[in-house]
Design a protein around this nucleic acid. Structure first.
Length: 646
RNA sequence: GCGCCUGUAGCUCAGCGGAUUAGAGCAUCUGACUUCGGAUCAGAGGGUCGGGGGUUCGAGUCCCUCCAGGCGCGCCA
């Protein structure tokens, strides 16, 4: 518990208010922290702030506040507090050493089950850096919520029946000889087209882009797409099976890519299983019964089943539109939104239908991964969440809101309230990155920024980014394993640093940097601390005493260490990886500052391990140990593997 | 037309519920270990926090308004 918290509690009681904020005084002699609460309350209490401050001071003096040594009042009414440094340092360090890996984690187990879905990449080509942002945000938030005590279930939705997969299937079956159905019906012949010198997801990346070009030229190929899409949706027959095989192969590739980034899941949810298990049929019946969906007999949506929204007809730049949301088209097919409503209901366990499940495999971290499957078995451990978080980019905000509002109209008010769209801005390419990828800038905006495009095959593949980083790191690192972990740290940190609704303008120089505010810096600080501790030998940190005088760098470091539990809690509540990334950097900086200059008043700087005075030596090293533990804990939440050596 | 997001140093970004002198990193310049990891550290220059109003003793932060940019508002997926 922060020192400030106990003070805040007392002040809240004294003034009968709900919030008290603290800050650091401009001059250190004034105190370790201060509050301007009496200035804020002056108007309400109709008293001069300085008088209020004096009164609070009087009352606080009568209470035994832990670690508070002195309280003073300065004009125009600030309350300044001085901390009993040695006792405080001692207390924080002992807490870290006692709790170890659990330091910072919430002590209370929460019963709420949180289902978080992320990644959700179309299984038709290699992942790019935009997909990686999604997976990293989702994984970091999952880890944060777990650390906050929640029961978290991580799902990854696989759209194996959509047009994107259909396009790749079209490409494989019909674009080059032998053409399926004409030259052959043997799928082995089709698979022979795959040039195995490339990984399958990379090969599909190019194929997908080429198919898009061909569609422009050949109408009959576009017709093939309709057929294939229909076949995939029917989830029966050789083409559907082939599509599933293609998608499965790509999913394996995607899982391998994200595993490099230390990202794992509990369950893969396949669209084909949502279709097969009749989710929509059940949801549609419920929607009709509730009256939330109505059949339109006239107007622009005649022949469709719609949910009524907004103001009916509305003016947009593309002409007049109905704001009502169509769930079933006039040709009888279901829209994406319709299927999404059914799926969201499953997540909360309010749809009678359920998937069948089977084990997909054991992930590199040892965790079991399950998948929905037509030939699986019943299990009751999945879904039935109390809260659902969908990590999807911000362009889907409107569609997500429609889904949640539809749930409400259906009568699932609680579920609607507990549905959360974790929207993040997309990753785009800087002018130089686009140029490097060989894109002639046609439709770029003024800054030369360019959106990635799977259709054009324009984008930075996730594996390429990691590989380039590794290549750069190998100049200074001996083992490839180490470079792999460092590269993952760098990429995860890079993607986490940005606020969630900040567009990332991707630039190679910036992303591949190894100095300054980077994941490498974090790893380096950790490895350095490990190295010092290894050289120091065995010390019983639980028996270390703190000197009378705590230096400024020591105090800065310990205060940041102490902040960790509250930072973790806040990051969880705000679903904010960037707060954790910032904290990790601040913590590492405070350590290097302490390491470089632990006592600014000392005449000479002596390395910790060579300090003569055994008590001071043990104390300095125990701070290193407490730092190392705390940093390792944040790194774990950020999904970064702490290295002991680089 | 409506809705959401963004605008802070040359560049990329932090800045929680208002609080004393707006912070980092990169880039530029100047420095620093015969001892713990130089992927580091110390220092310098660089800002009317998009503009304008307002609330407040006090605003990058709250409110209004305008400007610029991005995204969204399909019987597309």
């Amino acid at each position: 518990m922060l020192v400030q918290d106990t003070v805040a509690k007392e002040i809240k009681q004294i003034l009968d208010i709900t919030e008290v904020s603290f800050n650091i005084p401009p001059k250190r002699e004034m105190g370790d922290f201060s509050t301007a609460v009496s200035l804020a309350q002056a108007k309400r209490l109709k008293k001069p702030p300085i008088q209020i401050a004096e009164e609070i001071k009087e009352q606080l003096a009568g209470i035994n506040l832990p670690f508070i040594r002195e309280i003073s009042v300065t004009t125009p009414g600030y309350l300044n507090f001085k901390i009993d440094h040695p006792a405080y340092v001692q207390s924080v360090m002992q807490q870290v050493f006692k709790e170890k890996d659990a330091y910072g984690r919430s002590k209370s187990k929460k019963r709420l089950k949180v289902l978080i879905e992320h990644t959700n990449v179309n299984p038709n080509k290699a992942m790019h850096i935009g997909h990686i942002r999604n997976a990293i945000i989702g994984d970091t938030v999952s880890r944060t919520l777990r650390a906050s005590g929640y029961n978290v279930e991580v799902c990854n939705y696989i759209d194996d029946t959509g047009v994107q997969v259909a396009d790749v299937v079209v490409g494989m079956l019909y674009m080059y000889a032998p053409v399926y159905g004409v030259d052959t019906t043997d799928l082995a012949d089709i698979w022979a087209k795959y040039d195995t010198s490339q990984s399958f997801d990379y090969w599909c990346w190019d194929l997908y882009a080429r198919v898009q070009e061909e569609y422009e030229k050949y109408a009959d190929l576009r017709k093939r797409r309709e057929e294939v899409l229909h076949e995939l949706e029917s989830h029966k027959g050789p083409i559907a099976e082939f599509g599933k095989e293609v998608a499965t192969k790509i999913v394996h590739a995607h899982l391998a890519t994200v595993a490099r980034l230390n990202i794992f899941y509990d369950l893969l949810n396949w669209e084909s299983d949502i279709l097969e298990r009749g989710f929509w049929k059940t949801a549609f019946e419920k929607l009709k019964q509730s009256g939330a969906v109505v059949y339109e007999t006239k107007g622009p949506n005649a022949g469709c089943w719609v949910v009524r929204y907004g103001r009916g007809l509305v003016q947009t730049k593309d002409g007049v539109r109905s704001e009502d949301k169509i769930l079933v088209r006039s040709n009888g097919t279901v829209t994406y939104t319709g299927k999404d409503i059914a799926y969201q209901m499953w997540k909360f366990g309010v749809l009678e239908n359920d998937f069948l499940y089977k084990l997909w495999g054991i992930q590199p971290n040892g965790q079991e991964l399950f998948t929905t499957a037509p030939d699986g078995e019943q299990m009751d451990r999945f879904g039935h969440a109390g809260r659902v978080i969908n990590v999807i980019d911000v362009r889907q905000s409107y569609a997500q809101q429609i889904v949640y509002q539809s749930l409400r109209k259906l009568g699932y008010v609680r579920e609607a309230k507990n549905s959360e769209h974790l929207g993040y801005e997309i990753v785009v390419l800087s002018a130089s990155a686009a140029a490097e990828l060989g894109e002639q800038s046609e439709d770029v905006d003024q800054a030369g920024i360019q959106a990635m495009s799977g259709r054009k095959g324009l984008g930075v593949k996730a594996d390429d980014l990691l590989n380039r980083m590794i290549e750069r790191l190998m100049e200074k690192v001996e083992k490839r394993e180490t470079a792999e972990i460092l590269a993952a740290a760098a990429v995860r940190y890079f993607m986490s640093r940005f606020g969630i609704n900040k567009m990332i303008v991707f630039d190679f120089n910036e992303a591949l940097r190894t100095t300054g505010d980077t994941g490498i810096y974090i790893e380096y600080a950790h490895a350095r601390a490990c190295s010092i501790l290894a050289k120091a030998g065995k010390i019983d940190f639980t028996k270390v005493s703190t000197p009378e005088k705590v230096t400024v760098p020591e105090m800065n470091l310990i205060r940041i260490i102490e902040e960790y539990p509250s930072v973790l809690e806040r990051s969880g509540k705000e679903r904010s990886p960037s707060g954790l990334a910032r904290y990790a950097f601040d913590l590492a900086s405070a350590f290097t500052d302490y390491y470089e200059n632990p006592d600014p008043e000392a005449e000479e700087r002596v390395p910790f391990i060579k300090i003569k005075d055994p008590e001071l030596r043990a104390y300095r090293l125990s701070l290193v140990a407490a730092f190392r533990q705390t940093l390792a804990n944040v790194m774990n939440v950020l999904g970064i593997v702490p290295l002991e050596r680089i």
